[in-house]
Design a protein around this nucleic acid. Structure first.
Lengths: 225, 225
DNA sequence: GCAAAAGTGTTTATAATACACCCATGA
DNA sequence: TCATGGGTGTATTATAAACACTTTTGC
């Protein structure tokens, strides 16, 4: 009747980089699945909270500190880890890739950003976790302003638009999209212009988080179809 | 470095009964919190899946079998159980109360349905779990046809309407609500009428699950504001 | 015949969609 | 001057919201 189940955490960390959605993976240094790519994560220590465990593992394995973190789902099927029974509480995280320098350490041989459409085979049941995270990202993008946690602090409207098109996998009308987002009045238009190679220089924008929280309290709902 | 963490499951079981939203609770037979009311649940066995554990505990403690079950959230703060560190994976369940006879057994001294607004003090952090479940119920009700899992197979339109008003905590226009739900074409109007004490007898309806799945495949989205 | 709950349509306001041309820059 | 990406407005359609009287029954 005595239980012998371990508890781990894993993190799906998304970032938008090179006009693509990317995921942060580590290359495992130790068995099982030595040399395979996997989600960053590991066993929870006796006296730390689940969130602390995620943040510690991310720091140790990838040198990334997280901007946005929420619990995703718990995976506990017997046999998902070949050694012991392990329940993994998976987390969903967003970072601005340009703000962090990734670096492998402790259990990780290497760390890298992988574009979502060029993923290697993953260890354990991590592809299942990743699918769940993609679904969460897709649905969350439509009713919370989490897109801004994936972009740099200052960003181009066209990047926001590309981000939405990439993640939602559909075309978006540029005029309608811009009109709608601007009507929310949660963006600041900066006085800086950026010339991306060729074409007319574009204005930089900044997400006004304070303003968003204020409007939210007043009953405003962020909603992009 | 050796972990000593246990894994449990708990279930928040909702049912609509006597024109009110109810939750299924058990009275604990053993310490800690002996004699307190709590969510049904218990430790996961070594070789069973999390879902199996929930179903087993519900069967053992309450004699209820579930119509709808999904994972809710995992609670793992150190100290939430006074004895050991316990991570609890909470589940969200819906039943048609009229279809089950509840009965206490094993670890439970008693089982009862409690109207959501007349809850006793709960053991452990179960009030936090319950709040999370209420939030899930509220949001899910608007984009999935889960209301039908709470009512009897044959139900009155007025009960569906009351259910929505109770859970969403707002007034709903009867005409607009009926028009919208009927426009989905996922209900069957039966040829039976029921006289609820006084007033004009009402028609019974039935949720057509097959039709819903068919429409869903074709891209239909259930959506009630 | 009256109290109680069921049933039913139309009008108005708001939000979503479709759609095409000019602008500023670098090569 | 041309290719490239940035910026902008209006008309149409679809959806949501507001709103009140008639019907059927039990007492």
């Amino acid at each position: 009747m005595m239980q012998n189940i371990r508890v781990a955490v894993d993190a799906v960390v998304f970032g938008y980089k090179d006009h693509q959605l990317n995921v942060l993976l580590i290359e495992r240094k130790v068995p099982p699945f030595q040399g395979s790519w996997a989600l960053p994560g590991g066993l929870v220590l006796e006296h730390e909270s689940l969130e602390t465990a995620v943040e510690r593992e991310l720091q140790e394995e990838t040198n990334v500190t997280i901007d946005y973190l929420e619990q995703l789902y718990s995976f506990g099927k017997p046999g998902r880890d070949p050694r012991n029974r392990v329940i993994s509480v998976a987390y969903f995280a967003l970072v601005k890739p340009s703000h962090h320098e990734i670096k492998a350490d402790t259990d990780a041989q290497d760390v890298a950003w992988f574009p979502i459409n060029e993923l290697p085979e993953l260890a354990f049941d991590h592809h299942v976790i990743l699918e769940k995270a993609k679904a969460r990202l897709r649905s969350k993008l439509t009713y919370e302003p989490i897109g801004f946690d994936l972009l740099s602090t200052k960003f181009l409207f066209s990047d926001l638009e590309k981000l939405y098109m990439t993640i939602l996998e559909k075309k978006i009308d540029r005029r309608n999209f811009r009109k709608k987002i601007l009507s929310f009045e949660i963006l600041e238009e900066l006085d800086e212009k950026v010339s991306e190679g060729r074409g007319r220089p574009a204005n930089l924008f900044k997400f006004n988080k304070k303003q968003y929280f204020k409007l939210q309290k007043e009953g405003f709902l962020f909603d992009i179809k």
